[in-house]
Amino acid sequence: MILFEDPTIEELFSNYEEPYKSKLLEIRELIFACAEINSEVGKLKESIKWGQPTYSTLETKSGTPIRIDRFGESDIAIFFNCHTVLVEFFREIFSKELNFSKNRAIIINPLHKLPITQLEFCISSALVYHKDKIRTLRTYGM
């Protein structure tokens, strides 16, 4: 498990009920793992924005922030900047595997197993969005 550098963020996670807490922690680990395998990302900054755990590439400015939180009564979400084309891009590729909310989030049922392969792609894409945007969009014909 990736240790928390900020006790405020650790406390935020401790306040989530199960099964939300364990799934959000699993997604947190996945975000850090995706960042670690890509040298363009650099060290992630974990913070709280809008009351939600947020992951930013402040060191390299390679990507757009990712936020995670509960969504509605029974789900959780991975939020992306709505001013990007990321969710539209993910929807074109994973419309059968993932659920989305407008142009801002991937919605996940915390009672189901995480679709790791798809989420790794989405998270990695967000972490290098500013560096890789043109190449990625051309690859997928956007």
Rank of each mutant, 00 (worst) to 15 (best):
Ile48Trp: 00
Pro7Arg: 10
Leu44Ser: 03
Arg138Tyr: 04
Phe71Glu: 06
Ile106Met: 05
Ser22Pro: 03
Pro7Ile: 07
Tyr140Asp: 01
Thr64Asp: 01
Leu58His: 08
Phe121Ser: 06
Thr57Glu: 04
Phe13Cys: 01
Glu73Asp: 12
Ile76Arg: 02
Glu36Asn: 13
Lys113Leu: 11
Arg138Gln: 14
Phe121Thr: 07
Leu12Val: 10
Thr60Lys: 10
Ile108Val: 09
Arg28Ile: 04
Arg104Met: 10
Gln118Asp: 09
Ile93Asn: 01
Thr8Gln: 14
Phe32Ile: 09
Ser14Phe: 07
Lys131Ala: 01
Phe79Arg: 11
Lys45Trp: 06
Ser125Pro: 00
Glu92Lys: 15
Ile134Ala: 14
Arg91Cys: 06
Ser101Gln: 12
Met1Tyr: 09
Glu92His: 11
Phe80Tyr: 10
Phe32Trp: 09
Tyr55Lys: 07
Gly51Leu: 06
Arg70Ala: 11
Ile27Met: 01
Thr54Leu: 05
His130Pro: 00
Asn15Lys: 15
Ala126Glu: 04
Arg104Trp: 06
Val128Tyr: 00
Phe71Lys: 11
Glu46Arg: 07
Ile2Cys: 03
Glu29Ala: 13
Lys43Asp: 08
Tyr55Phe: 15
Asp6Lys: 10
Leu111Ala: 09
Pro110Ser: 08
Pro110Lys: 10
Lys45Phe: 11
Ala105Phe: 09
Thr136Phe: 11
Ile134Gln: 15
Phe79Trp: 11
Gly42Phe: 13
Phe94Ser: 02
Glu120Pro: 01
His130Trp: 04
Asn99Leu: 13
Leu127Cys: 08
Ala35Arg: 05
Thr60Met: 09
Ile93Trp: 00
Thr60His: 02
Lys133Val: 00
Met142Pro: 00
Leu3Lys: 15
Asn15Leu: 08
Tyr16Gln: 06
Pro19Asn: 08
Val85Glu: 14
Val41Asn: 06
Ile68Ala: 01
Leu25Ile: 08
Tyr140Ala: 05
Ile78Phe: 08
Leu30Gly: 05
Ser74Trp: 00
Lys113Ile: 13
Arg138Ile: 10
Arg70Met: 11
Leu58Ala: 11
His112Gly: 00
Ser14Ile: 07
Gly141Ile: 07
Tyr20Gly: 03
Phe121Val: 03
Gly72Trp: 09
Leu24Tyr: 08
Tyr16Asp: 06
Ala105Asp: 07
Lys43Gly: 00
Phe4His: 09
Ser101Asp: 14
Tyr140Lys: 10
Phe94Trp: 02
Met142Cys: 01
Pro115Tyr: 06
Leu24Ile: 12
Pro115Gln: 08
Tyr129Trp: 15
Phe80Asn: 07
Lys133Tyr: 06
Pro110Val: 07
Ser101Asn: 11
Thr60Ile: 05
Tyr129Met: 04
Lys23Gln: 13
Arg138Lys: 15
Thr64Val: 14
Glu5Asn: 14
Gly63Arg: 02
Pro53Ser: 04
Ser101Thr: 12
Glu97Ile: 05
Thr8Cys: 02
Tyr16His: 07
Leu44Trp: 03
Ile107Asn: 03
Glu18Thr: 03
Ile107Val: 15
Ile107His: 04
Pro7Gln: 10
Ile106Arg: 06
Gln52Arg: 10
Ile66His: 01
Thr64Ile: 11
Leu127Ile: 03
Gln118Pro: 03
Ala77Ser: 03
Phe89His: 15
Glu97Asn: 13
Lys102Gln: 14
Tyr20Trp: 11
Pro115Asn: 10
Phe90Ala: 04
Ile37Lys: 14
Ser101Tyr: 15
Thr64Gln: 01
Arg70Gln: 13
Phe71Tyr: 14
Glu5Trp: 00
Val87Phe: 02
Gly51His: 04
Glu97Phe: 04
